[in-house]
Write a protein that binds this DNA or RNA. Sequence first.
DNA 1: GATCATAGTCGTCTTCCTGACGATAAACAC
DNA 2: GTGTTTATCGTCAGGAAGACGACTATGATC
Lengths: 252, 252
Amino acid sequence: MPYDPSAFPPFAVTVDLVVLTVRRHALCALAVRRGEPPFQGRWALPGGFVRADEDLTQAAARELAEETGLCAHDPAAPAQDNGAHLEQLATYGDPERDPRMRVVSVAHLALAPDLPAPRAGGDASNARWAPVEELLQQGGYGRDGEPVAPLAFDHARILADGVERARSKIEYSSLATAFCPPEFTVGELRRVYEAVWGVTLDPRNFHRKVTGTPGFLVPTGGTTTRQGGRPAQLFRAGGATLLNPPMLRPEV
Amino acid sequence: MPYDPSAFPPFAVTVDLVVLTVRRHALCALAVRRGEPPFQGRWALPGGFVRADEDLTQAAARELAEETGLCAHDPAAPAQDNGAHLEQLATYGDPERDPRMRVVSVAHLALAPDLPAPRAGGDASNARWAPVEELLQQGGYGRDGEPVAPLAFDHARILADGVERARSKIEYSSLATAFCPPEFTVGELRRVYEAVWGVTLDPRNFHRKVTGTPGFLVPTGGTTTRQGGRPAQLFRAGGATLLNPPMLRPEV
DNA sequence: GATCATAGTCGTCTTCCTGACGATAAACAC
DNA sequence: GTGTTTATCGTCAGGAAGACGACTATGATC
């Protein structure tokens, strides 16, 4: 059925990705360097146009695969197929957010274990994992003393929203396991919570809590000493997605 | 700066509204009857195209005002200016969701007190408050025995997502007060929770809980007997937006 | 090999929160 | 007055969480 195109203004629709991981005890996000104006040379979130025949989730999964090689993990399929968790975050459509044209961006949030090395179209120097504090401090100075330029477009806001979503969602869901390899220890899971929340947690209470929550963790029978110290039991993520009662983020 | 329009496919962008209220002890949503194809004559969520110079939130607020006369309540401004709560819900962009063309819809969730009578461009017969169960039961029969046609487009899915968002968000935020008039009693607030969750709550424990949560309720000093029985204290919504500890939705 | 540092795991104790009630208070209808 | 309705205060038992003590099993170091 034909439709009058003058009845509505045309938009470009993109997906932007907040890809989070935990590296060296810090919450990190994937950033890519822009190769063309606007904001040429600045760091930005990975993303791209939604194609004409593509669903939004498909577009996000495609971009995620292109940037990281990760296979998106359909939330409906609980099998842990080495894929990352992917969910829609929010949509950003300020008329001024892209100086070239009217762009509406549907941001997605992806959570991945530490493993993958970044790659942006094969060029490693144009993609990196950066601690989120570093990416979010506007006009400050990085660890090496160099001035840090803020992220391109409104990506600082998008990243902040994604980080806040991850921080709150690991409270009442088993999503923290998405940051862990398929088999992990209670201590490794605790360090994920500590890195994402930026706190320290009591190992004994944490152990009691997560092992006492039905469906959260399933022991595999194996043990490991990869963290040093006494061998620790290995677990796999249980089927439960909603934690009841939830994990409690310390006050302060 | 010119940009090659062939580099990206054009989209139409709309906002759809899930407007919820509590009427006669039931959670109700605003539905409008479609006056033109596709889905002519079927009920749908209110919504419309985003204009060229409009932010997404502005567009949602404009549609809300057009359909209900409600003034959107900016979440950043906590003043209770007789406005409804409005927040972005999610974005729906399946290529097949609108048979006419490629439409991406940014759904918003609005919560309002019971007061307003629906109006859709001045025609009351084309807008109504309907219990969400009635709108969501696909192919069933309404209270009057008439067959119920499902909502147009993917609006049943959007409505279901909005209802679920509201149900979970009143757990850990003070959002339930958005369903109440500016001054309300503990019993009225309890009936909101009961209607949204579809449960019955113990009046004594509920009273202890909400009056004991700092920042949730502020007594105005007045009382009312509009619910019958012993006069009840009137409260206004306190400044707190996050409830800690949260309200607990009964299991079952 | 003894010692030490590191991490993991099991218990205890106190405090707080919640669910399940009983009991009382203040209005209105008859 | 009696009954009904709604509001509000109190009590008690069970469970969850924070603060910690104690013990265990590795690898690293002397």
